[in-house]
Simulated assay, not measured.
Amino acid sequence: MLDHQKYKRVLLKISGEALSSLTPGQHQGINQGMLNKVANDIRNVVNLGIDVCIVIGGGNIYRGVSGSKSHGIDRATSDHMGMLATVINALALQNAIEHEGMLCRVMTAIPMQAIGEFYIRRRAIRHMEKGRVVIFAAGTGNPFFTTDTAAALRALEMGCDLLLKATKVDGVYDKDPKIYPDAIHYDRLSYSNLLSQKLEVMDATAVALVQEHNLPLAVFSIYENDSFLKVLEGTAKHTLVTE
């Protein structure tokens, strides 16, 4: 069980698909209701005095790996297109967060001066020290790395106490609970078991990063009401991964 009083700074990883609908299923576009829901969840955590930073995916607009395989675009180009998709999502979420009365900054791993700040580690930390929410966009800025890896990297760079991954299901299961009714939910897991059982929560590069630095990972459902706060309070169903 988590205890929000233990955490001063956390990173929330949101998939692009999560922004496309208030319920699982739709995978394209941006749903304003979902943006508002996520922004409200973030506000409730910020109100506790916890620093919040975010890494957002772009799969609802364009997914680099899929584009490379299905359209014949070379992988590096396709990944850069996916990075641009994350910037679109970041700007949409920034707008929703500001409508909730919070200060928010978008920082991009690729220079885009007209729409966001270029990522500089110390500047990002300073933003959070001033109470601003920071959204990290454009992944790591490099092809062949996922936004999961970007989330692990930024969480470590920011000195976060916890990495939270918001998904379609309320934690990690031994198999897909949507297909298998007898799927077993894990309350706790080690990183080693996560890798050895090939439980596809995050890519192996991301898991290796957080494992090496013993950064706890919480996996939960983005679709539950106020799930972000409830996970930190230990009142929402989730899986905690540690070593």
Score class of each variant (00 low, 15 high):
residue 63 R to I: 06
residue 64 G to S: 03
residue 65 V to N: 08
residue 65 V to G: 00
residue 65 V to E: 01
residue 66 S to M: 05
residue 66 S to C: 02
residue 67 G to P: 11
residue 67 G to V: 01
residue 67 G to H: 04
residue 68 S to R: 01
residue 70 S to W: 01
residue 70 S to N: 10
residue 70 S to Y: 05
residue 70 S to I: 09
residue 72 G to P: 13
residue 72 G to K: 08
residue 72 G to R: 12
residue 73 I to Q: 08
residue 74 D to S: 01
residue 74 D to R: 06
residue 74 D to K: 04
residue 74 D to F: 08
residue 76 A to G: 00
residue 77 T to I: 08
residue 77 T to S: 10
residue 77 T to A: 14
residue 78 S to K: 09
residue 79 D to N: 10
residue 80 H to G: 00
residue 80 H to T: 13
residue 82 G to P: 04
residue 82 G to Y: 02
residue 84 L to M: 15
residue 85 A to P: 08
residue 85 A to W: 05
residue 85 A to M: 04
residue 86 T to Y: 03
residue 86 T to N: 00
residue 87 V to L: 15
residue 89 N to H: 08
residue 90 A to P: 04
residue 90 A to F: 11
residue 91 L to I: 15
residue 93 L to C: 13
residue 94 Q to K: 15
residue 95 N to E: 12
residue 95 N to H: 14
residue 95 N to Q: 14
residue 96 A to E: 09
residue 97 I to P: 03
residue 97 I to D: 08
residue 97 I to C: 09
residue 98 E to Q: 15
residue 100 E to H: 12
residue 102 M to Y: 11
residue 102 M to D: 02
residue 103 L to M: 13
residue 104 C to P: 06
residue 104 C to D: 03
residue 104 C to V: 11
residue 104 C to A: 13
residue 104 C to R: 09
residue 105 R to I: 07
residue 105 R to S: 04
residue 105 R to D: 00
residue 106 V to M: 09
residue 106 V to I: 14
residue 108 T to R: 01
residue 109 A to P: 00
residue 111 P to S: 13
residue 112 M to C: 15
residue 112 M to A: 14
residue 112 M to K: 08
residue 113 Q to E: 11
residue 113 Q to I: 13
residue 113 Q to A: 13
residue 114 A to S: 15
residue 114 A to W: 11
residue 115 I to D: 10
residue 116 G to H: 09
residue 118 F to N: 12
residue 118 F to H: 10
residue 119 Y to K: 01
residue 119 Y to V: 06
residue 120 I to G: 04
residue 120 I to L: 14
residue 120 I to H: 09
residue 120 I to D: 02
residue 121 R to D: 09
residue 123 R to P: 02
residue 123 R to M: 07
residue 124 A to M: 12
residue 124 A to F: 14
residue 125 I to G: 01
residue 125 I to Q: 10
residue 125 I to Y: 10
residue 126 R to F: 03
residue 126 R to N: 13
residue 127 H to C: 14
residue 128 M to K: 02
residue 128 M to E: 02
residue 129 E to N: 04
residue 129 E to C: 03
residue 129 E to A: 07
residue 129 E to S: 01
residue 130 K to V: 06
residue 130 K to H: 12
residue 131 G to C: 05
residue 131 G to W: 07
residue 132 R to S: 07
residue 132 R to C: 10
residue 134 V to D: 05
residue 134 V to M: 02
residue 135 I to Y: 14
residue 135 I to L: 13
residue 135 I to D: 03
residue 136 F to K: 02
residue 138 A to Y: 03
residue 138 A to N: 00
residue 139 G to H: 05
residue 140 T to R: 04
residue 141 G to I: 02
residue 141 G to V: 06
residue 142 N to H: 10
residue 143 P to E: 04
residue 143 P to T: 05
residue 144 F to A: 02
residue 144 F to Y: 15
residue 145 F to A: 01
